[in-house]
């Protein structure tokens, strides 16, 4: 398993070379958005408006944190299931989004759009929100404050551990990994 230090925004070369199954440590600025923020962004675009931040080359983290205690940057901050965002994702990819950080399987439509527009889907460990919050050094709500945990936040992260789930070529770790151990299992336990 290869490990890369990755600083956002990713370069074209990084987008093209990362492979499903690679480990990355993400540093730099990323933005959060989950169900309600996605819906509002797409509604805004459809009404002819513009997105609350320049999405080109950026990475979105599908995450809604717990409230921060006094003195904390952010509360527990792990990924949510990405599939619910699939409906909105191709439109954002078309506008230049180049990275997504979340957990869970993606639809073929999203994978096709990732290949077409050039994007990588990263996985953070679901259910590791306390650990992941320790990699977030700054957090600021930049839009849709009324959505509470679902507001859009600008995060500064440092060495946030993630894995490449789906690469630019459309290789999907969920499928590859499963196939590998599905076959092995018969031999080992069968």
């Amino acid at each position: 398993m290869k490990t890369y230090d990755l600083t956002t925004p990713m370069t074209e070369k990084e987008i093209n070379t990362l492979q499903a199954g690679d480990k990355v440590l993400i540093s730099g600025v990323i933005y959060t958005a989950r169900d309600a923020a996605h819906k509002r962004m797409i509604d805004t675009l459809e009404a002819g408006g513009s997105l609350p931040f320049d999405i080109r080359g950026q990475m979105i983290y599908y995450m809604g944190p717990t409230p921060a205690r006094e003195g904390q940057v952010i509360g527990s901050a792990g990924p949510t299931t990405a599939g619910r965002m699939d409906f909105f994702t191709p439109q954002l990819l078309e506008r230049g989004l180049s990275g997504m950080l979340a957990k869970g399987m993606r639809s073929q439509t999203v994978i096709d759009a990732m290949q077409k527009y050039g994007a990588v889907y990263f996985g953070a460990v679901g259910g590791a929100g306390a650990y992941l919050s320790s990699c977030i050094k700054a957090a600021e709500v930049i839009a849709y404050d009324d959505l509470g945990p679902e507001a859009i936040r600008r995060l500064e992260v440092e060495k946030l551990p993630a894995i490449v789930l789906i690469d630019r070529q459309g290789n999907d770790l969920y499928k590859i990994g499963r196939k590998k151990y599905e076959c092995l299992e018969e031999g080992i336990l069968g």
Partner: peptide, 24 residues
């Protein structure tokens, strides 16, 4: 790698009384 991350998470959560997962 995932299991190590999950176990580290449990330590960090308990020490800081931070929720194990943001989906409480």
């Amino acid at each position: 790698e995932a299991l190590e991350c999950i176990l580290t998470n449990a330590d960090i959560a308990e020490k800081g009384m931070i929720p194990l997962c943001q989906d409480t």
